[in-house]
Amino acid sequence: MFWDRFYDLCVSKGTKPNPVAKDIGISSGILTKWKTIGSLPNGETLIKLADYLDCSVDYLLGRTDNPEVNR
């Protein structure tokens, strides 16, 4: 679920996962783990991704279907 949401958000923002990862300091190897074995990012990385993609951490993790950030 995480990978699909992450990928879809990247595409909706006009980018792909590799440039996003590079911008927030994540290796392509980590992306591969997320995609192939379904591992999840740590808390700090989730926050960076959510901020970058302008969505909630809960949305990235599939805990809600609402991508809006509660601010």
Rank of each mutant, 00 (worst) to 15 (best):
residue 2 F to K: 04
residue 3 W to L: 09
residue 3 W to H: 12
residue 4 D to M: 07
residue 4 D to V: 09
residue 4 D to P: 00
residue 5 R to H: 12
residue 5 R to W: 12
residue 5 R to E: 12
residue 6 F to D: 09
residue 6 F to I: 08
residue 8 D to E: 15
residue 8 D to N: 15
residue 9 L to I: 03
residue 9 L to D: 04
residue 10 C to D: 08
residue 10 C to A: 15
residue 11 V to T: 11
residue 14 G to C: 07
residue 15 T to L: 10
residue 15 T to G: 02
residue 16 K to E: 11
residue 16 K to W: 07
residue 16 K to C: 01
residue 18 N to K: 13
residue 19 P to A: 10
residue 20 V to L: 06
residue 21 A to L: 09
residue 22 K to V: 07
residue 23 D to N: 12
residue 23 D to S: 15
residue 23 D to C: 01
residue 23 D to T: 09
residue 26 I to S: 02
residue 26 I to K: 12
residue 27 S to M: 01
residue 30 I to P: 00
residue 30 I to N: 10
residue 31 L to Y: 09
residue 32 T to N: 15
residue 32 T to A: 15
residue 34 W to Y: 15
residue 34 W to T: 01
residue 34 W to C: 02
residue 36 T to R: 15
residue 40 L to C: 00
residue 40 L to V: 04
residue 42 N to R: 14
residue 43 G to R: 10
residue 44 E to P: 02
residue 44 E to N: 13
residue 44 E to I: 12
residue 45 T to M: 05
residue 46 L to N: 12
residue 47 I to N: 08
residue 48 K to M: 12
residue 50 A to E: 11
residue 51 D to H: 13
residue 51 D to M: 13
residue 51 D to P: 01
residue 52 Y to E: 09
residue 52 Y to N: 08
residue 52 Y to T: 13
residue 53 L to C: 08
residue 55 C to N: 08
residue 55 C to Y: 01
residue 56 S to E: 02
residue 56 S to H: 04
residue 56 S to W: 01
residue 56 S to G: 11
residue 56 S to R: 00
residue 57 V to R: 02
residue 59 Y to W: 07
residue 60 L to W: 04
residue 61 L to E: 06
residue 62 G to E: 11
residue 63 R to W: 05
residue 64 T to D: 07
residue 64 T to P: 11
residue 64 T to L: 06
residue 65 D to M: 01
residue 65 D to K: 00
residue 66 N to Q: 10
residue 67 P to N: 06
residue 68 E to C: 00
residue 69 V to Y: 06
residue 69 V to E: 02
